[in-house]
Write a protein that binds this DNA or RNA. Structure first.
Length: 291
DNA sequence: CACTTGACCTGTCCGC
DNA sequence: TGCGGACAGGTCAAGT
């Protein structure tokens, strides 16, 4: 579920809500979600203070004053939801997806010394948290291999072109989903940016020309920025740190819009399967050229 | 090495 | 209403 804009929205929310809080207790209902030993938890998390919340790709990093960090991947259905006096209860029915916590999806519950709480919910149990020395975070396999951040100023169309060369024979959609090519894109923003650039998701990377890659670069950056502005996409499970939905999905051009008209040409949007994922496109504008 | 597929899980929706 | 199967926003291991 959560792609770069959703994880970034959670990061901003957590920075506002939990930095400076001191951990009192930690409950873990599903050890696979948080496999550190109890003694590590007691030594480096309990009684620690949160100093910062960072993001790299789709991974959140909560830094603690013990020189350890909580590294968190939400995968498909993970949620990090804060509950304190500021927002206790279910929130507004129009923008909240979840009610009282903990609930049956709660895997980890962190209580702070002021009685506020942070819940790690994850229906499908794919997500995880790990307690690691802060200095080791860049050395985990994922961090070593992950590609550039698309919203950093150093990221350019030229860099996108270079990074894509490692997947020359893949479909462009598979390449965009490959986190070693580029960080943070998932199924929603792959479809949205390919529509923006008028590129067929099954087009081979090696057959795309530089103007097409340049257009794709612009669309990736534009779509990600717009989604962050809208608080991300809530397709089913995603909520921010306050348990509230994002609204980007209302602005989506093709994602989850099969059988609806293309916003540019009114052709019916179709849904196909590419790289094992549901894929949405305009069949008139996004075509594979033969030469 | 590049590339694709199946596995990890629970829940929901759709067709019979 | 029940039941089986497909599918859901991500990543990794194992296969070709």
């Amino acid at each position: 579920m959560p792609e770069l804009p959703e994880v970034e929205t959670v990061r901003v929310g957590l920075n506002r809500l939990v930095v400076g809080k001191k951990v009192l207790t930690v409950l873990n209902d599903w050890p696979k979600s948080f496999p550190n030993s109890q003694s590590d938890v007691n030594q480096f998390l309990v009684s620690s203070k949160i100093t910062n919340v960072r993001r790299r790709a789709k991974v959140l990093i909560i830094d603690l004053d013990t020189s350890y960090s909580l590294v968190i991947h939400l995968k498909m259905t993970g949620q990090l939801v804060y509950r304190g006096d500021e927002n206790f209860g279910a929130g507004h029915p129009n923008d909240s997806l979840i009610g009282n916590l903990p609930d049956k999806s709660t895997r980890v519950e962190v209580t702070f010394t002021d009685t506020s709480k942070l819940f790690f919910n994850d229906q499908r149990k794919f997500g995880w948290m790990r307690l690691l020395p802060t200095i080791e975070v860049p050395n985990i396999d994922f961090m070593r291999r992950v590609g550039p951040e698309p919203l950093e100023p150093e990221f350019t169309a030229g860099i996108l072109y270079e990074r894509l060369q490692r997947r020359k024979n893949s479909s462009i959609k598979a390449a965009l989903l490959d986190q070693t090519v580029l960080a943070g894109i998932g199924n929603i923003y792959a479809d949205e940016s390919l529509w923006g650039a008028k590129i067929h998701p099954e087009a081979k990377v090696g057959r795309l020309n530089k103007p097409q890659i340049k257009k794709l670069y612009t669309e990736i950056v534009t779509v990600l920025r717009l989604s962050i502005e809208k608080g991300g996409s809530t397709d089913r499970n995603y909520v921010n740190a306050e348990g509230k939905k994002g609204s980007y999905i209302e602005f989506a051009k093709v994602f989850r819009r099969e059988n609806l008209p293309c916003p540019r040409c009114s052709t019916k949007i179709i849904k196909i399967r590419v790289a094992g994922r549901g894929t949405h496109l305009c069949p008139k504008e996004q075509v594979i050229k033969n030469d």
